[in-house]
Design a protein around this nucleic acid. Structure first.
Length: 260
DNA sequence: ATGGCGATATACTATCGA
């Protein structure tokens, strides 16, 4: 099973690019973030024509996540538990049939948190704490579980071309990285990191300041695997070429192939 | 160099993102 995550930065502005990439990559499952669309406005039809079932958890203007799956969903649950007052659409969980049994997939759009001296950063940290609590309970199910999305976390200096440029940023502050580590250390495997060594690969390049031209990227889109999923990991891939196309998202797709 | 870009709604300007 080929599982992908892609921060699309506006699905309506990017639907043709998304369809083109899906035809090339042909993932079985794709988690999308920043759809910037309400559920009603999501362009489901061109994805349906490619054979994808689509579930969305959108909101007006910003945020919003979706999951595409070639196989029909068995169960779908929006919203991260732990705070009923949180109205931002950043989490969508689904159970999807696999060749052997099922996999549980969560599409994640973790808050950015900038600027750090504001409630935005507190929201990020509390969201990460809620994610850890929920993930811990899901791990007890002992099933293949995939947390895939834009975590807005640069885990280590290896994950940035210029780590010194990010030291005061909510994506790279020590407290952010500590929270991410404590999530991973519950028992997850960072699929791209374990299949690469050295700097990169990067998954985001800013639109500004010639970041793409200078390969000034960061790795913030992650696929975290439960032990039962990690044992079945074949390979990972980052479709970097997508960033070089016209009107590209500032993120690129990240993929993992699992024997499930 | 707190933004040089880009998407979207609050729409000819403000907001958010990272």
């Amino acid at each position: 099973m080929l599982i992908a995550t892609f921060n699309i930065n506006g699905v309506k502005a990017r639907i043709e690019a998304l369809v083109s990439w899906l035809k090339d990559a042909n993932p079985d499952v794709c988690c999308l973030q920043e759809i910037k669309s309400q559920d009603d406005g999501f362009p489901k039809q061109p994805l349906d024509e490619l054979g994808y079932n689509v579930v969305t958890h959108g909101q007006k203007g910003f945020n919003g996540v979706a999951i595409l799956s070639k196989r029909p969903f068995e169960d779908v649950t929006p919203r991260l538990p732990g705070d009923d007052s949180d109205v931002q659409s950043r989490y969508l969980e689904a159970i999807i049939p696999a060749e052997k049994g099922v996999v549980r997939v969560a599409a994640i759009y973790l808050p950015n948190g900038n600027p750090p001296e504001t409630d935005k950063y507190n929201y990020k940290l509390s969201w990460m704490e809620r994610l850890a609590v929920h993930a811990k309970s899901l791990l007890q199910l002992e099933e293949p579980l995939i947390l895939a999305g834009d975590f807005n976390v640069i885990p280590t200096p290896q994950d940035a071309k210029r780590p010194e440029a990010w030291v005061n940023d909510a994506l790279f502050l020590p407290r952010t990285r500590e929270k991410f580590r404590s999530l991973v250390h519950l028992g997850f495997t960072d699929a791209v990191r374990i299949t690469n060594c050295g700097k990169g690969p990067y998954t985001f390049w800013d639109y500004q300041a010639g970041a793409w031209r200078r390969d000034d990227g960061i790795r913030i889109d992650h696929i975290l695997l439960s032990p039962q999923a990690a044992d079945r990991l074949n390979s990972t891939r980052v479709d970097k070429y997508i960033r070089g196309l016209d009107k590209a998202s500032d993120h690129v797709p990240v993929l993992a192939e699992l024997r499930v």
